[in-house]
Design a protein around this nucleic acid. Structure first.
Lengths: 191, 191, 191, 191
DNA sequence: TATGAATGAGGATTCATTCAT
DNA sequence: AATGAATGAATCCTCATTCAT
């Protein structure tokens, strides 16, 4: 995921695996070193600390999500089309980077410096949604809602639903989830 | 929150504070003991381990949410009315037990035994939503959607939006959030 | 074993069980209280400390062994007859009070005050053997050996052999062990 | 004793000292680290746990005893000569490794996994004695006795006598003890 | 006499980080 | 660039003992 080169990429990949499996605190540098087939000292050659490694990793990940979506939001699309695209892309991202998403949902809530940082990153993604919502409202395509609430709501709805499935027993049927999420985002549940 | 009596309630309250501030792993029994003004051993007199204390605490919390909502879902209400009630209650709960909700969203994702347990508990709450969705569909009031996806989606939408505000700078305006969430859940964003 | 009355005897018996099962250090006052069906405080009502309880218990036990043997060493018996009696009695005691004997062999070696005390107690039993040896030598019935070495040697030979069997899989055949020990003590192994 | 190299040998030696002085339970890793002039973590770098360190140490010790004796039991020796050699060697070993022998006698009795393990190790030494006894019986040099009883008996006789002296006030006169033990093992006490 | 909640010192173990090679 | 032995602060948990009832 989000490759670099050589030893560094090994460490990077191993870090994602281990952090998502155990969470930030329970993951150990030994774990990561072992998974990367690298001596522990080597990690410290490339990253100043566990914290830094983690931060770097999450930064990259959110960037991939945000930039991936952003690059597809062509200006010629209508707000409704854009919204549909966002729903589809986020579902796809969660399926593809499940482990990373676990990290994200896990390490974001709390008052630590690191967690504030993470929320800012996520915010930068939610901002994309907000903008589309705003455009939709202005274009008269969408109901008037607080864009920030809508942004976090849509992100949260998809995120929790996706993880709920991904961490449960059932297979992750992206298309079905997409249909349901699209319907709910677009029209809600009440007829 | 969710009182018990005497020393035990002191520990209980302190545990919520500390766990929500630091998360399960970073929270120490020393912290909790100090916060509760109790000797460390006293905690172990009442709870077998840090894990057990935590589990117990989360169990209680989810119960308060679930039972609180459940007790208000009078049979004479229509599915639409029930759904509205759920939205309102969950928003209210998040505002009232912010710290607990941070714990909940934080410690639920992952493969550890404890986390599976937590997801089961949350699931027991989401199940309430699913049932209402199902009733609504059967009554012809709701669009046909997969009830499970709708359940986790609605829970997630409200949860993330609420936390997003609660952990940000802005005041938690329950009524405004309720109006937005209700609109989104009921009608979506697209006109 | 070595009864007292009422609550105290319950504690006493429980202490033997637990101490022999776990050793002095690993045995806890909680264990003992639970086994005796008594509140922990009650133990402290009867015994000043864990150490004291233990000391008392070992004292009693060694007394039972020593006094039991001593009372049977009638003056009219020949040294050889006395020696035979000692062998038989010690084997019998080990079979009857296996748990206590485990304690004895376990907690006797080392430099702590308590252990010195225990060795003194055991010494008081070995002294019986030494006296018989001395009598036998003086009567011309026994080879001239250092009585102290003979005393500890005979005690040790029987003790270790008995425990070896008692803690192994095989049944404790007292009569067979007696025959072997008697032969070895009396005539050694070389023809 | 039983050297290794570098830090590890420091730990090893310190462990023997401390374990024999205080026993397994009372000995602390802090003690051992301090005695070895090593950080506590260093011990854990080399040994997984206190238990493992201890097990390793006892294993080595018993091996030294067993292999030392075994290597001297030349096939051309008669059973009687072999038995004499065993008596001498065991007495010598106890004198040389007093502290280790205290550990051995102390930590062997009980039902814990570790203790079973230890008894197996000791058994592997006693087995040497048993074989010699068996050979002696078959060669017509020894009285017919149960070899297992004789093995544990001889081991125990020497062990307890040796420790009795080593932990008492008197000097450890190996030659005198050897003469007495040899006489008792060979001919018993009765003329 | 008897109880059991409360205590806090003590001990095993973990792990991020350093540093000499 | 890479290594891995060494460190020691930090943390969970245990348990003998006390004491108010």
């Amino acid at each position: 995921m989000f490759m670099r080169k050589s030893k560094m990429s090994l460490i990077f990949q191993a870090a994602i695996d281990v952090f998502s499996e155990k969470g930030f605190d329970k993951a150990t540098m030994d774990d990561i070193a072992a998974r990367a087939n690298v001596a522990k000292g080597t990690i410290y050659y490339h990253f100043k600390s566990k914290e830094e490694l983690f931060l770097f990793l999450v930064e990259e990940g959110v960037e991939v999500l945000r930039d991936g979506v952003e690059s597809k939001l062509m200006p010629e699309l209508s707000p409704t089309e854009k919204l549909e695209l966002i729903v589809r892309e986020q579902i796809n991202f969660f399926g593809q980077y499940r482990d990373f998403c676990v990290i994200l949902l896990r390490e974001t809530w709390g008052g630590e410096e690191r967690q504030l940082e993470f929320r800012k990153m996520i915010r930068s993604y939610m901002y994309l949604i907000e903008q589309v919502i705003q455009q939709g409202i202005e274009a008269g395509e969408f109901h008037p809602v607080n864009a920030e609430n809508a942004g976090s709501g849509i992100f949260g709805m998809i995120a929790i639903s996706a993880l709920h499935i991904l961490l449960g027993q059932n297979a992750y049927d992206e298309e079905a989830l997409f249909q349901d999420m699209k319907r709910m985002v677009f029209s809600g549940v009440v007829k």
